[in-house]
C-alpha cells in the first residue's frame, strides 16, 4: 500500500515537473524568444541554446580515408595509410585526428564559438568531437591526461575563455581522464596564427610555450586538444615543448582541419 502510494506520488511529481518544465519553457519563450544563429529557426525545444538541434545534427564526421599519423584527410575512401609527408618525416606528435574539414556548418559553429564568444557551444562541440573519434582505438589507448593548447592571458581576457580548454574539459570529463589545464602556458602574445602564412606560422610560435609543472606531465601519454588544425604548427610547437619536458607521448585532436 505504502509502496504504491509512493510510486503514485512519484509519478504525480514527475508529471508536475514536466508541466513546470513546459511552463518554464513557455515563459522563456515569452521573455527571451531566441532564434538559431545559423538557420534562423525559433529555438523552442528544451535545452536549445544559440543554435537549433537540427543544425547540430547536421554535423557529420568525415568518412574518407586519412593519414594514420598526421590525420590529414585524403580525397579517397579506403583504409587509412601514411601520407607522403609523414613517410618522409614523422611529425613531432605521434598522431593527430580531427572530426571533419573546416567548412560548412562546422566552420560556422566554430566561428560562433570562438569569435562571437558563445562559450556555451563548447559542450555540443566537445560531444561531437567525442562522438566522431570515440571508435579510434589508437587515439585513446593508454591515454593518461588531456591538455588544452593554452591561450595567452591577454587573449583569454579578451575572449573571456580559452576555446581549447573548454573543449578539453568536456573530453576529459567524457572519458574520465585527468585534465591538466595549468601545466602548459603561453608565455608571450604572438599574432594569431590565422593571420599568417604556413612558413610564418612555424616561426611565429617558436618559444612561446612553456611547461610550468614538468612533474605533472612526466612520463605521461597526453592528449593535446585544439580547435582548428591548419598546418599543424601550433600543435607541433606545443608537442615539442611537452616532449622536451618529459611527456612520454603526445597525441592531438582537433575539431576540424583546414585544407
Amino acid at each position: 500500500m505504502s509502496g504504491e502510494t509512493r510510486k503514485e506520488n512519484l509519478s504525480v511529481t514527475l508529471a508536475k515537473n514536466k508541466q513546470v518544465g513546459s511552463l518554464l519553457k513557455i515563459l522563456e519563450l515569452m521573455f527571451f524568444p531566441s532564434f538559431c544563429k545559423l538557420c534562423g529557426k525559433l529555438l523552442d525545444r528544451e535545452g536549445e541554446k544559440v543554435v537549433c538541434t537540427s543544425c547540430l545534427k547536421e554535423l557529420k564526421s568525415r568518412r574518407s580515408s586519412y593519414c594514420l599519423c598526421c590525420g590529414s584527410f585524403f580525397e579517397t575512401y579506403g583504409d587509412p595509410h601514411l601520407c607522403y609527408k609523414c613517410m618522409k618525416k614523422k611529425p613531432v606528435f605521434s598522431l593527430h585526428r580531427s572530426c571533419s574539414v573546416y567548412s560548412g556548418k562546422l566552420k560556422d559553429l566554430i566561428l560562433l564559438f570562438k569569435y562571437q564568444k558563445f562559450k556555451v557551444l563548447a559542450k555540443e562541440l566537445a560531444a561531437y568531437m567525442y562522438r566522431s573519434l570515440v571508435q579510434d582505438e589508437a587515439l585513446w589507448w593508454d591515454l593518461e591526461a588531456v591538455i588544452p593548447v593554452p591561450l595567452h592571458k591577454a587573449r583569454k581576457r579578451q575572449r573571456g575563455f580559452n576555446q581549447s580548454y573548454e573543449l578539453a574539459r568536456y573530453i576529459a570529463d567524457f572519458k574520465g581522464l585527468e585534465l591538466l589545464d595549468k601545466a602548459l602556458i603561453k608565455k608571450f602574445n604572438v599574432p594569431p596564427q590565422t593571420s599568417l602564412s604556413a612558413e610564418e606560422r612555424k616561426i611565429n610560435n617558436r618559444g612561446a610555450y612553456e611547461v610550468v609543472d614538468p612533474w605533472k606531465i612526466k612520463g605521461k601519454i597526453l592528449l593535446l586538444v585544439d580547435d582548428v588544425y591548419t598546418t599543424g604548427a601550433t600543435v607541433s610547437e606545443c608537442s615539442a615543448v611537452l616532449l622536451k619536458s618529459g611527456a612520454r607521448e603526445v597525441r592531438v585532436v582537433t575539431l576540424a582541419q583546414a585544407s
Partner: peptide
C-alpha cells in the same frame, strides 16, 4: 532582461 538573457545565452528582442 537583456543582462539575464546574456547570462542564459538567450537573445533579447
Amino acid at each position: 532582461t537583456f543582462l539575464i538573457g546574456k547570462l542564459i545565452w538567450k537573445d533579447t528582442n
